[in-house]
Write a protein that binds this DNA or RNA. Structure first.
Length: 551
RNA sequence: GGCGAGUUGGUGAAGCGGCUUAACACACUGCCCUUUCACGGCAGCAUUCACGGAUUCGAAUUCCGUACUCGUCACCA
């Protein structure tokens, strides 16, 4: 076909497209941003399912845009109707809000470069395709799915490269008359790229994370527009990221193999190339096979991002974890700068792991524990309440009803330089502090006490009635416990007991243990005296009574 | 199978040709502190960087080959 014929073809194929490339180039001028500003984007498909890998890339998008005073936008990539799930898009935006990864523009966030939903950009894609047809870089292909399958089969047998290219691209050089005949026949067609590449040539791509990558030139006539007139990912990527002026495409590593195509598309379209940063997948060592594998929806509960919300992993702790996977030197920096915000750290692509990053649950939990240990009781209370309101309304009511005591309990041993680390998620609070709320305590009724030991109830009753003074200091209180221990044939220190066990019935620790079990229902607890002070003598006696009834 | 990438301890990893007798963190173990747990302190935890070869005075670090793992090869993104 000569140019005149291609023009005619373009008009026949896209009679309704009247705008031109120039129109869009003018409509979407460059943003007025400082030098070095990065423009990033998160482009989820509308299934609405967000997994850890997605969250990680969105996190990186946010962090890089933010630290360069750039822009981070949300684009819904809903080019495939089969992927539409009811409420999916709403879920994506609500997840972004829940995890505090807020785009500066984009779908539902406003901005000058919209529409930010690919299904609303069909006219734009078609305008550029029309132009490519005129310029001889795209053509309608009428091959049936059966034909393509047959070619693939043949290619598999011959062990040649799979795809529609070179001699296999039979519709590449159809004459205008042949195309018209197909059209008259109402044959369905797609628009394919007429790839100018030669695989004998090598191209070099610099990936911001992976460094220098070499590939053979792309030569497959990839589909640009599907038969419903909708673009494929690759084409939409080129058009959108150009028109929206993305500077850095941060995406999963599964895209590196399509890099030659994307580079070629940018070239043919005359766009300045974007920079790519391909993030390594999050992996896990499979418990059964021992192999490293990509995390999966079915096998790994923490793959779906809902898990973190439902279990009450604090967002800030999750951010810390995402930051440690994003940059390998973050963890050390944070250790030295525990009071700084994530955004004070300077993230860089060359500190990003090239290989797969394994999900380290223990590390996440440790981050969480440290997070909680540094929070005051009031904050832990407020955040836990917020979580419970969403996920455990029964507990939320109890928290509200017991607010002041609850905060006191949560504040035990928080003042010193060595705060406790006993909570790693909001959902732990209910369990760890079950003794803090009477109704919960009574419901549990010592069922969690693993100790089979028989405690001397009368002895403890004697202690509480005759020795216990709650209006004193911890030190004086403990001295009195020791005194009581000695008077009753117990050693005042575990060491004494250890040296001469035959001289004693036990030691102070045993008495404390008995008290602890009776008033908290557990063998481990924060500082005993603090708990008793908050509880008060009446409740202490009441709980001992409960214990007596149970045994 | 083609193409691309990765491979350092129990885990996440630092390392970019001599400063490495392989950092740091998490986990684990032991001891100490101690009324329990936690916290904290001390100590231990890869003589070795998947394997084989090459380059070099010198390699975890460069090159080649092998193995394994991962990604991709859709009118899905």
């Amino acid at each position: 076909m000569n140019e005149a014929e291609r023009r005619e073809l373009a008009e026949i194929l896209f009679p309704n497209i009247t705008k031109t490339r120039e129109y869009y180039e003018e409509k979407y001028p460059e943003r007025n941003l400082p030098d070095g500003a990065m423009i990033t984007r998160y482009g989820p498909s509308p299934t609405g399912f967000v997994h850890l890998g997605n969250l990680l890339s969105a996190f990186a998008d946010m962090v890089y845009a933010r630290q360069t005073n750039g822009s981070f936008f949300l684009r819904i990539e809903d080019t495939d109707q089969k992927r539409m799930v009811d409420g999916g898009i709403e879920n994506i935006t609500s997840v972004l809000h829940d995890f505090d990864i807020i785009p500066t523009e984009g779908y539902s966030f406003g901005g000058e470069y919209g529409p930010y939903r690919q299904s609303e950009r069909t006219e734009i894609y078609q305008t550029y395709v029309k132009d490519l047809i005129v310029r001889g870089y795209a053509y309608p292909c009428f091959m049936s799915e059966e034909e393509i399958a047959a070619i693939k089969e043949e290619q598999e047998i011959n062990k040649t490269k799979i795809g529609i290219y070179g001699v296999y691209a039979t519709d590449r050089d159809l004459s205008l008359e042949e195309v018209k005949a197909h059209l008259d026949n109402n044959d369905e067609y797609v628009i394919r790229l007429k790839s100018p590449g030669n695989p004998k040539n090598e191209i070099e791509v610099i990936d911001c994370i992976k460094g220098k990558l070499k590939f053979p030139e792309h030569d497959i006539d990839t589909i640009l527009l599907k038969k419903d007139g909708t673009p494929t990912y690759h084409f939409a990527h080129a058009i959108d990221d150009h028109l929206m002026h993305t500077t850095h495409v941060i995406r999963g590593d599964e895209w590196v193999s399509s890099l030659p195509l994307h580079i070629q598309l940018f070239e043919i379209l005359g766009f300045t190339p974007v920079k790519y940063a391909h993030i390594a997948p999050i992996t896990i060592k499979d418990a059964e096979t021992g192999n490293i594998r990509k995390i999966s929806k079915r096998k790994d509960p923490w793959f779906g991002v809902k898990y973190y919300d439902e279990n009450g992993i604090p967002i800030e702790a999750l951010h810390l974890y995402l930051a440690t996977i994003t940059n390998t030197n973050f963890e050390e920096w944070y250790l030295q700068n525990p009071d700084k915000s994530i955004f004070d750290f300077e993230f860089s692509f060359d500190k990003q792991a090239i290989g797969g990053t394994s999900f380290d649950e223990a590390k996440l939990m440790n981050l969480c524990k440290t997070y909680f240990s540094r929070k005051k009781g009031e904050e832990v209370y407020e955040e836990t309440l917020k979580w419970a309101l969403k996920h455990d309304s029964e507990y939320a009511e109890l928290l509200i009803a017991n607010k002041s005591d609850m905060i006191k309990f949560l504040n035990i041993e928080k003042d010193g330089p060595r705060p406790r680390k006993d909570i790693s998620k909001y959902s732990d609070v209910k369990e760890e502090f079950s003794y803090a709320i009477d109704s919960l305590f009574e419901k549990e009724n010592y069922s969690k006490n693993e100790s089979e030991k028989e405690y001397d109830i009368d002895l403890i009753l004697d202690y509480v009635n005759n020795y216990l003074d709650l209006d004193t200091t911890n030190e004086e209180w403990f001295n009195k416990v020791k005194e009581f221990a000695t008077n009753n044939g117990y050693a005042s220190s575990p060491k004494d007991y250890k040296n001469n066990p035959e001289n004693y019935k036990g030691h102070v620790g045993d008495i404390c243990e008995a008290i602890r079990v009776m008033i908290t229902g557990r063998l481990k607890s924060p500082d005993l005296f603090s708990i008793m002070k908050i509880l008060g003598k009446d409740k202490i006696l009441h709980r001992i009574e409960l214990y007596k009834n149970k045994h």
